Each structure stands twice: as C-alpha cells, then as structure tokens.
Amino acid sequence: MTAPTGEIYRIDWVPGTDLLHGTCHCGAEHTAPDPVEMWEWMLGHPEGHEPRGVAS
C-alpha cells in the first residue's frame, strides 16, 4: 500500500526501549511496542488520530 503524494509517515525507534514512536502526516503521534500495531494505527486514518494541539 502506498500513501498519496505529499503524506509523510514517520516511525522512529525509542532508544533504550522496545518501543516505536510514530508521527502521522496529520501530526498525530502514537507509541507502540509492535510494528504491526504501529502501521495499523498509521494507515487507519482518521480512526485513533488526534492531531497535536487538539483537546479532547
């Protein structure tokens, strides 16, 4: 599956842990221990996403 042009998904390993930290093209962030969980969250847009600066 490919992302539409201009959308950047970033996943970084959190040093010293077994965690991954993802940032979606919308600015929402998520941390998870499992790469599959991380990609499901990333590609499940907008379900589970809350962009930075948005209060719930």
Rank of each mutant, 00 (worst) to 15 (best):
M1H: 06
T2C: 03
T2Y: 01
A3Q: 00
A3E: 07
P4G: 07
T5F: 09
E7L: 15
I8P: 02
Y9C: 05
Y9G: 05
R10H: 00
R10N: 00
I11A: 11
I11G: 05
I11D: 04
D12L: 11
D12Q: 15
D12Y: 14
W13M: 12
W13H: 14
W13F: 08
W13G: 04
W13T: 14
W13N: 11
P15Q: 10
P15T: 13
P15F: 05
G16S: 05
G16N: 07
T17I: 05
T17A: 10
T17W: 09
D18E: 15
D18N: 15
L19T: 10
L19K: 12
L19N: 11
L19R: 13
L20E: 01
L20Q: 04
H21Q: 11
H21I: 05
H21M: 06
H21G: 00
G22N: 03
G22R: 01
G22V: 04
G22M: 02
G22D: 01
G22C: 03
T23C: 03
T23W: 00
T23P: 00
T23A: 02
C24N: 04
H25L: 00
C26Q: 05
C26P: 00
G27R: 01
G27Q: 01
G27M: 02
A28V: 01
A28D: 06
E29D: 03
E29W: 00
E29G: 02
H30N: 03
H30C: 08
T31Q: 12
T31W: 05
T31R: 10
A32N: 14
P33R: 14
P33M: 08
P33E: 03
D34H: 14
P35S: 12
V36A: 13
E37P: 00
M38H: 07
M38R: 09
W39S: 08
W39Q: 12
W39D: 04
E40Q: 10
E40W: 02
E40I: 01
E40F: 01
W41P: 15
M42V: 09
M42T: 06
L43I: 11
L43V: 12
L43Q: 13
G44S: 14
G44K: 09
G44V: 11
G44E: 06
G44D: 08
H45K: 12
H45T: 08
H45V: 06
P46C: 05
E47P: 02
E47S: 15
G48P: 04
G48F: 11
G48L: 10
H49Q: 04
H49N: 04
E50M: 13
E50I: 12
P51S: 10
R52V: 09
R52H: 06
R52C: 03
R52M: 08
G53H: 11
G53T: 09
V54T: 14
V54H: 11
V54A: 08
A55T: 11
S56E: 13
S56F: 15
